[in-house]
Structures are given as structure tokens and as C-alpha cells.
């Protein structure tokens, strides 16, 4: 029991980057345990994916050709069968929306402890030590897993992607999928967040978060955006509340933006928000909380009340 099994992530015909990050994280663990790194590729164009994922560090790739799109029942069954065949010490999965749709079920089925959203992993061969955040990124923790085997989902963009060309063996697993146990089916996909504006095109974004408190208060942010000739965007709660349309949302489930200037006002900087704006050239944060996670990626900051700073800033441009 020294091997590591990682599960690749893909969606609608595309292998997602976290798959290569899983290879890096898995390799690091396998180097210590002294075992092999296996990569599972389940559903979709598996041969094409296997070729792409065959990067340095992977010892064996197992493909399970079953259906085009993600289905958690197929994943759960296929991973359980691979687990029985390989007997890995650690199983790694992506902390993506689909990862969270199968990993907990796999852990339950195989009676493995599960750690989700790890940002760091270490093992001495016996005890697994994971780093993860709590309270929306305000603190980080170390969690020790006291078990022979464990399942971990890793946060995307925390490990570098594996590069190079590997020489992994590629094997097709003839998984025994019980079709009667499949209780859900995908009927389609929809792109949301279209409409009149495309915030990903903007050079300057004035972005507002839950610090604004009330819908009526949005006017002061609109005034600022107008004065700066900037585009208005927001964090998720503003859209959840129906105060701005979905096409204004920045983040994991909204848009990825890379403006010249991103002004985050009353936004804490949760990981799902940061995923959508960390590529901005200059990031300015206006937030009363000097410890807010947004400060980690901001270039400039004002630790003050937005209701004082925003009108004063607008005035400077009138």
C-alpha cells in the first residue's frame, strides 16, 4: 500500500489544468511513500486525454471509457474498482464542482477518511498532513490524518502543473459498471451570464462586494464607476441577492477578468472570487478589515470604510 491514485478532471471534451496539478501533488507523495503514481481517466475521449496527461512523473494511466460526460455513479464505481486493483495509500481528486460530486461518495464507499480543498500535502510515509483554510481564508490549519489510506481533494492552482512527456503505461480498464445503480442523467448544459456587457473586456473594473450592505447603497458605486469611466462588477452575494445580473459576477462560477485596474470594494477575497480576478494587472482593495484575504493579492489598499472612501474618490474625478 504505497501507491497513489489521482483522478483526472475534464469537462465537455477538455482536460482541465487541475489534472496536471494532481500529477504534481501525487508525484510528491509517491516519492515519499516509494510507490507508483497512477492516473485514472474516466469517461470522455479517454485515449486523447491519456496522451495529453502522460507527463513526467506518471507511472501508469488507467482509462475507463464509459460515456462522454461526467456522471458521478460511473466515477464512483470505476474508482472503487481501481482502488481494489491498485490498493493505493492515497487517492487524490480535484476540489472542483464535479470532484465534490463524487469524492465524498467514493470515501464513504471505501470507508476512507476524506480531506477536501487541501492547499498543501505532506507525508512521512505513515501520517498524512494536509493544510487547509478555514473561515473563508482568514486562517490556515494543519490536519493530520491517522489512517492507513485516505482520499484528498486538492484546490486548483496550488501545485504547479506537471510538464514534459512521461512514459506511463496506458491500460484500458474494462470496468464493470452497474447501470441500475445510475440514478442521475445529464440532459444538457447551459451557458449563463450572457447579455449586454462583457466585464472580461473592461480595462477598469469597479467591483463591489457584500460590504455595500443594502441595494440602495449601490448608487455610490455606480457614481464612482461613471466618474472613472469604468465598468461595474461584483462578488457573488451581490448577484445572489439579485442586485446585479449574473454577467457582472467575477469568480469561479462567474467570469474570469484581467483588467488593467481592479478595484475591490467591500470584497473579502474568498478563493472562489480570487480565481476570477487574480490575473488583473493592478489590484486595489478598499476594506475595513486589514486581515481580509484580498490583502494578500492586492497591490494597493485602503483599510477604511467604503462609505467614506468611495464618495471622496468619486469627488476627485468630478
Amino acid at each position: 500500500m504505497t501507491d497513489v491514485l489521482a483522478v483526472a478532471d475534464h469537462r465537455r471534451g477538455e482536460l482541465r489544468d487541475v489534472s496536471y496539478e494532481l500529477v504534481t501533488a501525487g508525484r510528491e507523495l509517491a516519492d515519499v511513500t516509494g510507490g507508483d503514481l497512477h492516473l485514472a481517466i474516466i469517461s470522455g475521449p479517454v485515449d486523447d486525454f491519456a496522451e495529453k496527461a502522460n507527463r513526467e512523473g506518471v507511472d501508469a494511466i488507467h482509462t475507463v471509457s464509459h460515456g462522454e460526460e461526467f456522471n458521478h455513479d460511473i466515477y464512483t464505481q470505476a474508482i472503487a474498482q481501481l482502488y481494489d486493483a491498485i490498493a493505493p495509500q492515497y487517492v487524490l481528486a480535484p476540489n472542483s464542482v464535479n470532484g465534490l460530486d463524487y469524492a465524498p461518495a467514493v470515501a464513504d464507499e471505501l470507508d476512507l477518511p476524506i480531506v477536501t480543498d487541501a492547499v498543501g500535502l505532506e507525508t512521512d510515509g505513515q501520517t498524512l498532513i494536509a493544510n487547509r483554510e478555514m473561515y473563508g481564508g482568514k486562517v490556515e490549519t494543519t490536519v493530520e490524518v491517522d489512517a492507513e489510506s485516505a482520499l484528498v481533494t486538492i484546490r486548483s492552482a496550488e501545485w504547479p502543473t506537471a510538464e514534459g512527456t512521461g512514459d506511463a503505461s496506458i491500460e484500458a480498464l474494462d470496468a464493470d459498471i452497474d447501470k441500475d445503480a445510475i440514478g442521475s442523467s445529464v440532459t444538457g448544459f447551459e451557458e449563463v451570464g450572457g447579455g449586454d456587457v462583457d466585464i472580461s473586456e473592461a480595462d477598469v473594473l469597479v467591483s463591489i462586494g457584500r460590504g455595500i450592505e443594502e441595494e440602495e447603497n449601490l448608487d455610490i458605486i455606480r457614481d464612482l464607476a461613471d466618474a472613472l469611466d469604468a465598468t461595474l462588477s461584483s462578488s457573488r452575494p451581490i448577484v445572489d441577492n439579485g442586485w446585479l445580473p449574473k454577467n457582472r459576477q467575477v469568480g469561479q462560477s462567474g467570469k474570469v477578468v484581467t483588467p488593467d485596474v481592479y478595484i475591490a470594494i467591500g470584497i473579502s477575497g474568498a478563493v472562489q472570487h480570487v480565481a476570477g480576478m487574480k490575473g488583473s494587472e493592478t489590484i486595489v482593495a478598499i476594506n475595513t478589515d486589514p486581515n481580509a484575504p484580498i490583502m494578500d493579492i492586492a497591490d494597493y489598499a485602503i483599510h477604511d470604510d467604503l462609505f467614506d472612501v468611495v464618495p471622496a474618490l468619486t469627488e476627485q474625478f468630478q
Binding site: 477518511p113 486562517v139 490536519v143 493530520e144 490524518v145 490583502m295 497591490d299 489598499a301
Partner: peptide
């Protein structure tokens, strides 16, 4: 359970943020 919380700390930051001080 098999998980034990062994440490809690403020995340290290590589931030070199410039903080402006003073009134609004």
C-alpha cells in the same frame, strides 16, 4: 474520526501591498 486539527495559524502572505494611511 480519523482527522485531527493540529495547528491553526494566520496564512503566510507574500503580499507586498502598499497601504495608504490617513483620513478618507
Amino acid at each position: 474520526g480519523d482527522l485531527e486539527l493540529t495547528e491553526m495559524y494566520e496564512p503566510e502572505t507574500e503580499s507586498d501591498v502598499t497601504v495608504w494611511e490617513g483620513g478618507a
